[in-house]
């Protein structure tokens, strides 16, 4: 092989590298998501329990904090490992275990009000982040189980401690096995 050929080969390789580098850089700048849509996409992966265990006042503020780099991705106990994994994949970070400082995963539960004991003080109403409690002052209050996220935020305000969390009623997801007759 002559030196010419070697030089040519090196030049071609270099040119190729430069072109590809520029192209990739351009592509990366084109697909760089703007901050808002990143918040949206992070928010979409959070469980929307709105419990505040992440020490943000809801899922979206936490999403904004992650997007801004102000919080790690390991602070959402309701989402558990699955959410951390999904976040890690979205943000291209290594997955990490849930930070126990923020609480551990719990089985899915919903609130239930002991209507015998409820005094109708209505203090639980504004506490519920998803308005899953219905009732009016001096009336008995009730949780709409299908809308309750199990966030437990209604427990502290209740003066008579008549709210408790119960296992989610059997989901009516009936998968029917179709049959060949």
């Amino acid at each position: 092989m002559s030196t010419d050929a070697v030089v040519m080969a090196v030049l071609v390789a270099a040119a190729l590298a430069v072109t590809l580098g520029v192209a990739l850089g351009w592509a990366a700048s084109r697909i760089e998501p703007d901050a808002d849509s990143l918040v949206e996409r992070i928010d979409a992966l959070l469980p929307q329990t709105q419990c505040g265990q992440c020490r943000y006042p809801g899922c979206r503020p936490y999403a904004a904090a992650i997007a801004a780099g102000a919080a790690e991705i390991d602070r959402c106990p309701p989402g558990g490992a699955a959410t951390v994994r999904a976040l890690a994949a979205l943000l291209d970070r290594p997955p990490r275990p849930l930070d126990p400082a923020f609480g551990g995963p719990k089985p899915a539960r919903v609130a239930w009000i002991d209507e015998e004991r409820c005094i109708g003080c209505a203090r639980c109403l504004p506490a519920c982040p998803v308005d899953a409690i219905v009732g009016a002052p001096r009336q008995m209050h009730t949780v709409i189980a299908a809308q309750c996220t199990g966030c437990e935020l209604c427990l502290p305000p209740c003066p008579v401690d008549c709210i408790e969390l119960r296992p989610v009623p059997a989901v009516s997801l009936r998968y029917r096995q179709p049959r060949a007759a």
Partner: peptide, 14 residues
């Protein structure tokens, strides 16, 4: 679906 509902209800709530 439930998460989407919760998000919407939370936004309304806020």
């Amino acid at each position: 679906q439930k998460a989407a509902d919760a998000r919407q209800r939370h936004e309304l709530h806020m």
